[in-house]
Amino acid sequence: MKPAAVAIPKHDDAWEVGKYGPVWPRTPACYGFTIIANIKPGTAGTIRAYGQKLAKALEGDSELLAPLKLHYLRWVLFDNDTRFMYQGIFDTDFDKYTEDAIELFKKAGVDTVFESLEGFPMDWKTNPEAFIKFVRAHQCPSFLEYGEYPYVTADEIKKALKVKAALSDMLEQMQ
């Protein structure tokens, strides 16, 4: 396996259409999206606190976000804490990821950091189409994606790390 990159063409009508709009192609980095939106005035502290809350929840339950099949998640406040960037890389397509995210938050009984973003629909738990419309409207598609380990899923990476640990343990026991 060797690293790979894909230049993603600008979206046009020839793209496959999923349940909620165009299906961006799977790339060497798998699937993902970047959202950039203005935050509601005065909510930067709330957004940072939500990040701390999520990190703490993951300490208690490391599998909390497992249904999302995430590789990476990055949140950034910028432009003097007036804009927010959400960047996620995951193994499922956009439609599945957003549906799974809505269900996960409803099941866990928690809100989303997106509630601090201007124009985010407050009925998102019962109106997934509005949630998805917001995400699509604020999505900034990438035009190049690179993968050091292309097209490998998070589950495959976890499995490989378990095999590595088991082999290391076996080799240590043989010495």
Results as ranks from 00 to 15, higher is better:
Y20T: 13
P128F: 00
P25A: 13
K53G: 01
K40A: 11
E16S: 10
W75S: 11
D91Y: 03
L104T: 03
L64P: 03
N38G: 15
F114G: 00
F105W: 14
H71L: 09
F78Y: 14
T82W: 03
R74M: 11
R26G: 08
I36E: 14
P25F: 09
I102N: 07
N38L: 14
D91T: 09
Y97H: 12
L70G: 02
L64K: 12
F84T: 02
R83Q: 10
I132N: 00
V110T: 08
K56R: 13
G60A: 01
G45A: 08
R83N: 00
Y72M: 11
R136C: 02
T34D: 05
V6Y: 07
E129F: 00
L117K: 12
L64F: 15
I132P: 04
A55K: 09
L77W: 06
L65E: 01
I8T: 13
P22T: 10
T46P: 01
I47L: 13
K96P: 00
W124P: 00
F120V: 01
G45S: 08
V110P: 00
W75R: 01
A101K: 02
K19S: 02
V135G: 05
A29Q: 01
A130Q: 08
I36N: 01
I35P: 06
G60M: 02
R74P: 02
F114R: 05
A44P: 09
G109N: 05
W24S: 12
T98V: 10
Y86E: 07
I35T: 15
K107E: 15
G21R: 04
L117D: 04
V113I: 13
A37K: 08
F78K: 00
F84Q: 00
L104H: 04
I39M: 11
S62N: 14
G109W: 09
G51A: 11
W24V: 10
F33E: 00
D12N: 13
G60K: 06
R136D: 02
N80S: 08
D12G: 03
G42R: 03
I47W: 08
A14I: 03
Y20A: 05
Y86S: 05
